[in-house]
Structure formats: C-alpha cells, structure tokens
Design a protein around this nucleic acid. Structure first.
Lengths: 295, 295
DNA sequence: TAAAAATACTCCATAGGTATTTTAT
DNA sequence: ATAAAATACCTATGGAGTATTTTTA
C-alpha cells in the first residue's frame, strides 16, 4: 500500500538528488529513507530513481510520478490548512506573472486586484512559466497569470481572454498590409530567450519551425525586441497588449495584422486544483479581464 | 501526521454513514476504524463526523474535508495507474453529459469523438451536474461535458464555448422583439426540475429570484418545456443549441433574443485534475467545439 | 579510495484484533 | 432493549535506528 510517507521521501530525494541529504531533510536516517523508497518502487513495480551517477536522478517513470506525488502532498497540506483555518479567502494572495504579460496588464489591473485582496499581504512576482508552475506546486505561489495552455497534474487553469499577435517590422521594409501566418519564417524572426513561452508560441506559428535557424541572440524582454525592430534589425511577433506601450508609438516600427484566423495566445490563471479559494480566483480573473487595456 | 489510511477510512464512513459498515468495507474491525478516525480528528483539531444521529453524518468541517480526501485518494490511485500503465491515452473514455446538452451536441459530435478515442470502450452517460462530478471524483467517469463554472477541489475545467440563452414564448403572446434580462420574472418562467443546472441559471438571471415563486411543476426535459410553451402555458429560457431541434420549428413558439449583453452559459469539460490525458481531453474539447451545430 | 547507497539486524511505536462498556434511540 | 460507537488491552507488523557491506566514480 502506498503511503504519504513514501511520497514525501520520494519528493525529498527528487529535490536533493541525494539520499543522505534527503534523509537529513526528512529528519530520519539514510537507510530508513532507502527502505521506504525501495518499498515504493516495489509497490509501483517500477524504478523511479537512477542511482548510477554521482547525483541521483529521476528515471522516465520517476519524471511522471514525482509531480503527481508533489501534487498529492500539496493537497494534503491544503487539507490540513482548511481544517485549521477554514476555507481561505483571497487574503495574502501571492501572484506570479510571466514577463511578457506583467508590464502590460499589471499597471491597470493592480488597483482592482488590491480592492479584492485588501492591501495586506499581497505580493507579485515575475518569472517564466515553468518557474511559476513549480512555485504553485510547492505552494510558494497561489496564482499565476500566464499564457495557456499549461498541462500539469494538480494544476488547474482558468482562461481569461485571447491576446492576438501582430507582426512588428521596420517601417522601412515593404510589407503587405495583412499577412498570413504561412508567410512567417522562423529564421526571419527576432525572438526572446529560451524559456519564454512567447518564443515557443512564435516558433510554433512558423511552418513547423524546423528549418535550421541561424544562431539568434535571444532578447530578454519585449522592450529589447522593440528597439531591435526599430533599429531595423528584423521583425518580431508582438502580443496585442504590448503594442501600445512598446511598439505602436515608434514611427520606425510598422505593425502588421494577420489575416484571419488571427494567431493569438490565451491569457489565463493557473492555480493548484486544491486551492479552494476558487471563487476568489474567479473574481481575480474578472478583475484582470475587466481592467485590461483595449478591452 | 495525516496518513492515507485515515483518509481512506474517512471516505468510507462518509460513504456508508456507518462505522461498522465502513469497517467491513475496509476489511478491518470497527474499533480499528474508529481509532483511525479519532486520530485524524485529533490531528486536524476538528470533529469531522456527527455520531449523534442513527446515521453518521458529516459536520460542516467534514463537508469541507471529505471532498479533498476523496480527491487525494483519486490522485493516489491515478499515480499507481500511471506507474502500471504509463500515461494513459484517451482509450476507454467514459464521458458524462448533462441532459440539457446531450441531445443537442452529441449527435453531431459523436463521429468526431469516436475518431479520437477509437471505437473500443467508449461510453456516454447522461446525468446531472452533481452526479457527474461525484462520478469524476471517484473515477467512474473520465470527463464530463457540462455548464461551467463548477468549483470542486481536485476537479479541473476547460471552457469550450458560450451558449446563449433565448426566451421561448407562445407565439400568441405580444412580445418586444428584443428583451432585457431585467424583464424576466422568476414566477413567469417554466423551469426544469430541481437539480438541473439550467434551472439555477434561469433563476439567477431573474432579478435575484427571491420573489415567492408559486409552486411550479418542474419539467424533466427541455422537450417537455417546449410542448408546454407551445401549448401556451408559459415562457421559458432556452439555450441556443436547443433552438433548432426543439423550439424554432414550432410555429406556436416565438423565439426572442436578449438585448446585449446576452445571458449565456459556458459549456465546458470537467475532469480530475490528475487525469493526465489532458492533451487528449483538449482534443476532445476541440472536436466538440468544432462539430457544434451553428458554430 | 572515498562517497554514497544497499543490506543486516534490532527495537519500538502503532495499526489492528478481541472483549467489553457506554451511549442513544 | 438494542444497535452502534467508544474504550481497554493485547498482539504483531513495519518504520526507524545503528553497524556494516557493496558499489562506482
């Protein structure tokens, strides 16, 4: 029979990559931990950890199991918390936002958000999608505002609205007034750094994007991309919400719309599926949607 | 420390409303079960079960805790399953649909759905929202097609599309060509039986619906409502998807649209947040959306 | 050879069992 | 009076400890 204890130990080993360190973290001896892990692996009929290297790593099966284990442990923690404090409201909300949304949505949305949460204990934090999802899983974050879809066991999403993409090109360049996604070539686009979901979205729009892309410097922000485009170094994909503040006012940049169906990203919220303040999260979503510029 | 064992026993007592029966179900003695429940209650610092009546019932705290416990147990079961079978595809899909959607969406969507799942082991089942959610939680159902929002710990949703409401009234009655939701009076509407989410949606549209409603016979289906309206017995709220097959062809029924913003229900999918075949579920959602009549 | 996980074994905390009492209809 | 849960007490499983061996970078 699987026990929570086993899952806790598994999560600890996954975190530390080291049996001894994990055991210390769990305040037990290393053999006890080894025994529980072995028990779990027998129970599941599969090896979860690869002990061959100097650092303990996850097997493929481990990669599938560990996030589920973490989700379960979070759910148990939530259950305890609900018992201790009742169903939580939206006080002390910890919100995470991806960098390609934060500067465009937060300024307008913050007042509305504060009206919901009350001033106390509200904290915003900017990071990329995968980081935010990790933080949601281990309960250092309550909600993340990001681009959907995300698909993680134990993490639930709420779609808010579509944010269309436009092409930003140097004004000097000859362009059609309406372009088609099939006109996009991956090697002609300026892109963000690896890890930014916007980069992946841009690439997936380009015909399969498998063309051997020449080495690109990845920009760290849309505002960098804007100045690159303005300087005539290339064109890039811009989400609608970024147009006003970064691109549309610059005479050196031409904004080109896509022929329908317009490519777009879905902006939404992600949160632990056990987080229980779902009504409050829905409110938060409405506040963000309502305060969105050019709604 | 909370254990899965305790949660299992709690779930069993919640299900049976009886310690002895639950113990039998868990294949242990009644005192052993009592002990674990007591342990859990101490651990959580709250009484979960009310033993005063002839039947054991849940306290308020119990009502909050039990669904979370069930979600955790399902997540553990899923984890085992993933270990045993790998990440499941969308084979053997068990789909649940609410009665106010099934007849209108399924006929068109079924071919596309079967194309995804393959013919084998696909089963559809019609029930009301609360039943479907229970079935999803205890893993007798994989996905439910219903009206959002639903808000349950451990259950995740995917919004598909908006389904607008129209008013269906006897053709003889004088009506404006466009009406406003504020014109709706709860006591003038023919409604479905208690438990149908469409009933609640209709009521919530009427100015707070707290007016003392005269005793209404609740209809068991939209087709019953259609004949009542056709017979001149009253008016009712109809979702757009039901218009074609049930209402629009009947000369005795007048369909009236609402002034913007149109009231609507959101049609979507619900599934366990641990179900892991999320890509497949997304596919399913797309298939349903695409095959929707009047898309 | 040095660091780290597995193995061997011992011990005790606790889940579970039986018998019985208490409680509430 | 009876059904059902709580309590008392005993047993034994399994989780944790220490000491040691095996493994591999």
């Amino acid at each position: 029979m699987i026990t929570l204890r086993q899952l806790r130990y598994l999560a600890a080993v996954a975190e530390h990559g080291h049996f001894g360190r994990a055991a210390e973290d769990c305040a037990i001896s290393q053999p006890s931990l080894s025994q529980q892990i072995a028990e779990l692996e027998t129970e599941l009929g599969a090896r979860l950890l690869d002990r061959s290297g100097r650092k303990v790593t996850l097997t493929d099966m481990g990669k599938a199991i560990v996030p589920r284990a973490q989700a379960i442990l979070s759910a148990v923690a939530d259950l305890s918390k609900v018992a201790a404090e009742g169903e939580p409201g939206l006080h002390s909300l910890r919100l995470g936002v991806i960098p390609t949304i934060a500067p465009f949505l937060l300024p307008a949305a913050l007042p509305a958000i504060r009206r919901i949460t009350g001033d106390a204990g509200f904290r915003v934090h900017e990071a990329m999608t995968h980081t935010l999802l990790d933080e949601i899983r281990d309960n250092t974050l309550d909600v993340a505002l990001l681009a959907l879809p995300v698909s993680e066991p134990g993490i639930e999403t709420l779609a808010l609205f579509e944010d269309r993409f436009f092409l930003a090109a140097p004004a000097a360049r000859r362009m059609k007034s309406l372009i088609d996604t099939t006109d996009l070539k991956a090697d002609e686009l300026l892109l963000l750094d690896d890890g930014h979901c916007l980069r992946d979205q841009a690439l997936s729009l380009c015909g399969d994007g498998t063309g051997d892309r020449r080495e690109q410097f990845g920009a760290t922000s849309l505002s960098t991309l804007a100045s690159l485009v303005a300087a005539g170094l290339g064109q890039t994909l811009v989400p609608a919400m970024a147009l006003d503040s970064l691109f549309a006012r610059d005479k050196r940049i031409r904004i080109v719309a896509f022929r329908k169906p317009c490519p777009a990203r879905t902006v939404g919220l992600a949160f632990r599926s056990t987080s229980s303040n779902k009504k409050a999260i829905r409110q938060l979503g409405e506040a963000i949607t309502a305060s969105r510029p050019r709604a």
